[in-house]
């Protein structure tokens, strides 16, 4: 199962998108789906870097990505503060300009794009698992 460890820094988002993009490409997803899967992975990793590892240098995150049948699964493991995306308030994406919230958009996009977003946290760390079916 393809697994890579990345430094939890925004500079590595490019590599994270390439890693999941390559597996989604091999898995036969369309260009549109691949772009969206990369976006969901970017948003998830950005949240880990920004929130789970807030103020922590030299942190690492482990990303596993694999295809099973027509489903891609992306798992991200970190040892930072627990950050459950399901606790993030859903932004009102129909609010007008002045009411529009700046936060929560990444999680909103992850949920819109992926079929399933699951989060669990224990004493070892935090695990985010996202799945999407092809087509």
């Amino acid at each position: 199962m393809p697994k890579e460890t990345f430094q939890a820094k925004f500079e590595y988002l490019d590599e994270i998108r390439e890693f999941v993009g390559a597996i989604a490409t091999q898995g036969g997803f369309s260009d549109k789906e691949i772009y969206n899967i990369q976006l969901a992975a970017d948003e998830a990793a950005s949240n880990i870097i920004e929130h789970a590892y807030e103020g922590i240098k030299d942190a690492l995150m482990e990303i596993t990505c694999n295809m099973e049948g027509s489903t891609i699964t992306i798992s991200m493991f970190d040892k930072g503060k627990s950050f459950d995306p399901s606790n993030v308030k859903q932004p009102d994406v129909e609010a007008d300009l002045s009411e529009r919230q700046i936060g929560g958009l990444g999680v909103f996009l992850m949920r819109k794009i992926m079929d399933d977003v699951h989060y669990e946290s224990n004493s070892k760390g935090n695990l985010l698992v996202m799945k999407k079916r092809r087509g």
Partner: peptide, 19 residues
């Protein structure tokens, strides 16, 4: 080629200023 929600937020903040 690509823009994540981090870019969207920058657009939103600027739109608020401009308006």
């Amino acid at each position: 080629e690509y823009m994540s929600s981090a870019g969207f937020r920058a657009l939103l903040a600027t739109q608020r200023d401009c308006k």
